[in-house]
Design a protein around this nucleic acid. Structure first.
Length: 155
DNA sequence: GCCAACGTTGGC
DNA sequence: GCCAACGTTGGC
């Protein structure tokens, strides 16, 4: 099993939206980057866990944990001309974009802020912390996962 | 297939 | 709001 990090802007869809969602489950859609798409389509497996990360907000950081409950399938928002995520080059016969379904596992009592991750010397290799990284779907190593979940419990 | 221009991301 | 980083587009 693998570990991931999923970025979202809390003003659009934050962890509290997921808490309130039906079955605390949502479709992770609207990803329009090929590298991130490949992760969603090919590499994410049912049962994988992911950090739920808040970006572009006052205090960016990890807000909780979600589980992949449905593996990659076509992102239908790309077929909808009224959607913000519409892409005329993606068709139902030949879909270009994929999504997964995720379910809430845990909302952290306190957000684990980005600055705290940066302050931990054992996380300097983490992709999230690398300069210039903008991918909205990122792999997380098992070691990084273990370190961060420990940091959360120690709070 | 190169590469300049442009758009987006996202921390600060 | 700024700006560095990086992906995408499109002319050639």
């Amino acid at each position: 099993m693998s570990y991931w990090l999923l970025k979202t802007e809390p003003e659009t869809f934050g962890i509290d939206n997921l808490v309130k969602a039906k079955n605390q489950t949502t479709m992770w859609e609207g990803v329009r980057n090929y590298q991130a798409r490949n992760f969603l389509q090919k590499e994410m497996k049912k049962g994988d866990l992911a950090f739920f990360y808040h970006s572009s907000c006052e205090v960016p950081g990890i807000a909780g944990i979600v589980e992949i409950v449905r593996e990659g399938y076509p992102d239908e928002t790309a077929f909808d001309s009224t959607s913000d995520y519409y892409d005329p080059k993606s068709t139902s016969n030949n879909p270009r974009w994929y999504r997964v379904d995720v379910k809430l596992v845990e909302k952290f009592k306190q957000l684990m802020p980005l600055h705290a991750l940066r302050a931990n010397p054992s996380l300097t290799e983490m992709k999230l912390l690398q300069k210039g990284n903008r991918l909205s779907v990122l792999p997380v190593s098992q070691q990084e996962w273990r370190i961060i979940t420990k940091m959360v419990k120690a709070k």
